[in-house]
């Protein structure tokens, strides 16, 4: 039998090979082994290569306005600030749809076609390496939720974030990718009001752990940072740069602290 395994190839080559597959075999290949599952689900290199090699593959974002279904075509280098309604086309039934019911109703499987979707309002938070971060519901309402979608594979993951307090008056979400740690982050900036005192802003950073289906909990809270008037850092670019700095600091501190404990 064969002695060499494709697993012995460097990750870069393996991902390069997988990214050349058409969409159907990609889904089948997820069943081959856990390593491929992870590569095909969350590896940024895969998404990047897939976009380069199949430049015409549309990223699909499903929008429903007054029961009209729309598919949006988005590219990896999509301009975040332009209105996300540039290329609407009618929804084709044959296209693989994400399991919207999972996304919206945790305990309701009666709605496999996601028709309940109409009741909620989906807005785009951001795009990163072809992944899409969506806000489900209204930001100022308490029951909103965040989900990350891999539109390439039509998959959604709902994000479990801690509940918000009543005092919160302003919330901003951002979605980004840290080149340094090779991880996806969701940032939540919360501004709280206090009587007679300046508003207090708080930045929470959530890191996407490896997308292991088996292990359950996907998202882990990394760290909460406190600061005043962080709201001025509203631009996405600033956020990313700033965040990278923070993470460099954090990783530099970690060994120091554990060293002291010893």
């Amino acid at each position: 039998m064969n002695e060499v395994s494709i697993m012995d190839l460097p990750r870069v080559i393996m991902v390069e090979i997988l990214s050349r597959l058409p969409i159907e075999p990609i889904f089948r290949c997820k069943t081959v082994c856990k390593c491929w599952y992870n590569s095909l689900t969350s590896d940024p290199l895969f998404v990047k290569l897939y976009h380069i090699i199949s430049p015409n593959f549309p990223c699909i974002l499903l929008l429903l306005h007054d029961s009209v279904s729309l598919l949006l075509e988005l590219k990896a280098d999509y301009d975040y600030h332009s209105i996300p309604r540039n290329k609407p086309i009618m929804l084709s039934i044959t296209f693989h749809l994400p399991r919207l019911s999972d996304l919206l109703y945790d305990d309701n499987d009666d709605d496999p076609f996601g028709l309940c979707f109409v009741k909620k309002n989906l807005t785009l938070i951001g795009l990163c390496n072809g992944f899409i971060c969506l806000l489900n519901g209204m930001r100022h309402e308490e029951d909103h939720s965040i989900c990350i979608s891999n539109p390439l594979l039509g998959e959604y993951f709902k994000l479990k974030l801690p509940q918000l307090e009543k005092r919160v008056c302003h919330i901003v979400y951002r979605f980004c990718f840290s080149e340094g740690s090779v991880q996806y982050k969701v940032l939540r900036l919360i501004t709280r009001k206090f009587c007679g005192r300046p508003d207090l802003s708080e930045l929470e950073i959530y890191t996407l752990e490896e997308l292991m289906i088996i292990s359950g909990e996907m998202w882990a809270k990394l760290q909460v940072l406190y600061g005043e008037n962080l709201a001025m850092l509203m631009s996405m670019v600033l956020f990313i740069r700033w965040m990278v700095k923070i993470f460099k600091k954090v990783s530099a501190f970690t060994p120091l602290i554990s060293g002291q404990k010893k």
């Binding site: 064969n2 697993m7 290949c29 082994c33 390593c35």
Partner: peptide, 10 residues
Amino acid sequence: VREIFNISND
């Protein structure tokens, strides 16, 4: 695929 590329099913 597993056979050809010698991948063990985990």
